[in-house]
Design a protein around this nucleic acid. Structure first.
Length: 679
DNA sequence: TTAGGGTTAG
């Protein structure tokens, strides 16, 4: 307003300032203002030019049904509106992802009423609008109309039809349209490729790309590259991905930010997170999607600390995180057990008006559950308006992980009565709830109901859960029978569960079988050797135990490097064996020394060789802050030495220590974990 | 005035 101190207030802005109207249109702030300007325009036919009307009609709020109705009445008052004007309205509606389909159809019918016939622009706009809402039926009706007018042969109309069928997952219809006419351009090929990817047929998508580039000798552009890279990411085929990357260089495909992002995503999904990171660092232009791609890539590849560092760097560069970023961060926090950072993300979400619903809400529930705050997880869950299968599943898995099996099963019942259909992952939660609650027969019934009542084929994870459940209950014969009835090769988890059960129940003979099979699938892991030598020791077969240890050395089995993570004042610190190599570990040691100085401990343990000694000191010193339970979180597995340290620190300092493993939380009090398992 | 592209949850 500083530039026009004498400008009238909106309520006095009147039609008399006609020459200013088009300019005024750029600053419309409310529907009231818009209505005033409309009234002015309706009175003055000379102002009814397509650009002016188009501006009014593309006011962003016009995409809601009421406002499209408003546009209809405006058009009804104009003498002989042109097809161009209708097309302009459809264009602006097609640019919003929230335009009402039914209101748009009415507008289209008005147009027909006025004896205006759709042309090769009308159909693409409307088809795009329908595609945005996945309105398949409306799209099919329009397809029929296009055939009637003969415009279905137009390449723009056809490509838009293909695109609509593609987003609706109707890849056969896409292929049919592609095959139906000889005239195809790069857009047709690209739409077909992405149609296959969207339908989960990534191999087909790659085949189409190969046919296009080698047989038809068409040169791919950036958009086509993005489409095929996304198929390649889906396949996780690194070799193919590298070839595609080389193609971009060899054929001089323009490397825009989309292509860069797709490459980053492809490399992370194919497991080559280093290449992804290098590429990201070299990108001349990055947007928020670039950051999201590398962050989620690092999270997927379990590089959580690097993901957090990138998030900080992103903020340092002033890039605003969006919902994708926040979900990526929440996943990272969940895996790290980084509760404080997770809470910070939650606060950020609330402060910035991001809805804690949908995927964001689901990620919050999961984060709180995995960070040991099942109460907060339930709070977020309770407030969510749209609970889908993932929401329920996250909560069920979370409850099971916290040893609250009965509640998990109750929630499963609630979910069913709410009409939300369970999927395979839900059953992993349900079965592990039964396993931890010791409800073996209930679990077996659920397992049977998977295929019988829900049409879900049990996967290897489900067999693993049931073997584990039977094993814990000492029903080793049934566990063994189930394994022999499996339609797929049992994996390490299945054999490991059986072996663990044999150790707990002292069945040496079956344990030997299980250990043999475990070594077949996982020869380089220490688990089978260690469990088996424990089993021999318990059965007073020391010489056999020794034999296992020797075999382990002979086979050059590397002990799994222990990796412990601890959150201290919201900062995650990593402890690994061979700690001198880890700068993070050094930071912690420096902090420990500082604590020691403050507490006048004479000899900070510089000389301590093994990191567990340092950890003990760290825990002990941190434990001197009264009233704070110690939170230990872990990544891969807490090494054996850390176990004993945790136990003894808990006893020594009489502190509660919470430790998370892959399956549940352990609360150590006075050196003992209440669940009495695993450790 | 027209078409095809990248990142998120259990």
């Amino acid at each position: 307003m500083a530039f026009s101190p004498s400008a009238p207030s909106p309520s006095t802005t009147q039609p008399q300032s006609q020459p200013l109207l088009p300019h005024k249109l750029d600053t419309i702030r409310s529907m009231d203002e818009l209505k005033q300007i409309q009234a002015a325009i309706l009175k003055t036919p000379s102002l009814q030019s397509p650009p002016v009307l188009a501006k009014i009609l593309s006011f962003r709020a016009l995409s809601s049904p009421q406002h499209i109705a408003h546009a209809r009445s405006l058009l009804a008052h104009i003498d002989n509106p042109s097809l161009l004007l209708y097309n302009t309205v459809f264009r602006s509606l097609s640019r919003s992802t929230r335009s009402s389909v039914s209101a748009s159809i009415m507008l289209y019918e008005d147009m027909l009423q006025k004896d205006l016939r759709p042309d090769s622009f009308t159909f693409p706009y409307l088809l795009k609008l329908f595609a945005n809402s996945r309105a398949l039926q409306a799209g099919e009706a329009l397809h029929a109309a296009a055939i009637k007018t003969g415009l279905h042969a137009n390449v723009y109309v056809r490509n838009n039809l293909m695109s609509l069928y593609a987003v609706c997952g109707k890849v056969r219809a896409v292929q049919k349209l592609f095959d139906g006419f000889p005239e195809r351009d790069l857009v047709s090929w690209t739409t077909l490729i992405s149609g296959y990817t969207k339908a989960g047929l990534a191999k087909e998508a790659v085949k189409v790309f190969e046919e296009m580039t080698s047989e038809k000798n068409l040169r791919a552009d950036g958009v086509a590259m993005v489409a095929v890279l996304s198929a390649c990411a889906e396949l996780g085929d690194l070799e193919l991905g590298r070839n595609l990357h080389r193609y971009i260089g060899a054929r001089e495909v323009d490397m825009d930010v989309f292509v860069g992002n797709a490459l980053v995503d492809m490399y992370s999904k194919c497991g080559d997170v280093d290449s992804a990171h290098q590429l990201f660092n070299k990108m001349p232009v990055r947007n928020v999607v670039s950051w999201n791609s590398i962050i989620s890539g690092l999270v997927d590849n379990r590089e959580f600390k690097q993901a957090l560092e990138l998030f900080r760097r992103m903020q340092g560069e002033g890039i605003e995180p969006d919902a994708f970023t926040l979900v990526g961060m929440l996943n990272s926090c969940a895996s790290l057990g980084a509760l404080e950072l997770g809470q910070w993300v939650h606060a950020y979400i609330s402060k910035n008006g991001v809805e804690a619903d949908g995927i964001t809400g689901n990620a919050l529930v999961d984060m709180y559950a995995k960070c040991g705050r099942i109460d907060r997880a339930m709070e977020v869950f309770g407030r969510m308006a749209h609970k889908d299968v993932v929401t329920y599943t996250s909560m069920i898995v979370g409850l099971a992980m916290h040893g609250r099996g009965e509640e998990a099963l109750e929630l499963f019942a609630v979910m069913s009565s709410a009409g939300v259909k369970p999927n395979e992952v839900t059953f992993v939660g349900v079965l592990s709830a039964c396993s931890h609650a010791g409800l073996v027969d209930v679990g077996l019934r659920h397992f049977e109901s998977m295929s019988a009542a829900h049409g879900l084929a049990p996967q290897i994870e489900h067999y693993g859960c049931v073997v584990d459940m039977l094993g814990r209950a000492g029903r080793l014969d049934e566990a063994q029978d189930l394994i022999s009835s499996m339609p797929m090769e049992p994996d390490a988890f299945v054999w490991g569960s059986l072996l663990g059960a044999c150790r707990n129940h002292g069945d040496v003979a079956l344990g030997e079988t299980a250990a043999k099979r475990l070594l077949d699938v996982e020869p380089q892991e220490e688990g089978a050797y260690v469990l088996m030598s424990n089993l021999y020791a318990a059965g007073n077969r020391r010489s056999d135990g020794l034999r296992m240890r020797k075999a382990m050395r002979a086979n050059k089995v590397r002990k799994t490097p222990g990796c412990s993570l601890i959150e201290i004042d919201g900062v995650i610190h990593e402890f690994r064996k061979g700690e001198e190599l880890h700068p993070q570990a050094k930071e912690v040691y420096a902090m420990v020394d500082e604590f020691a100085r403050r507490l006048h401990i004479d000899s900070p343990p510089d000389e301590a060789r093994h990191h567990s000694e340092r950890l003990a000191v760290a825990l002990g010193l941190i434990g001197t802050r009264p009233g704070t339970p110690l939170r230990i979180v872990k990544n891969l597995r807490v090494c054996r030495d850390c176990h004993s340290v945790i136990k003894s620190v808990s006893r020594l300092y009489n502190r509660e220590i919470v430790l998370r493993d892959r399956y549940r939380f352990h609360r150590f009090k006075d050196g003992r974990c209440s669940c009495n398992e695993f450790w």
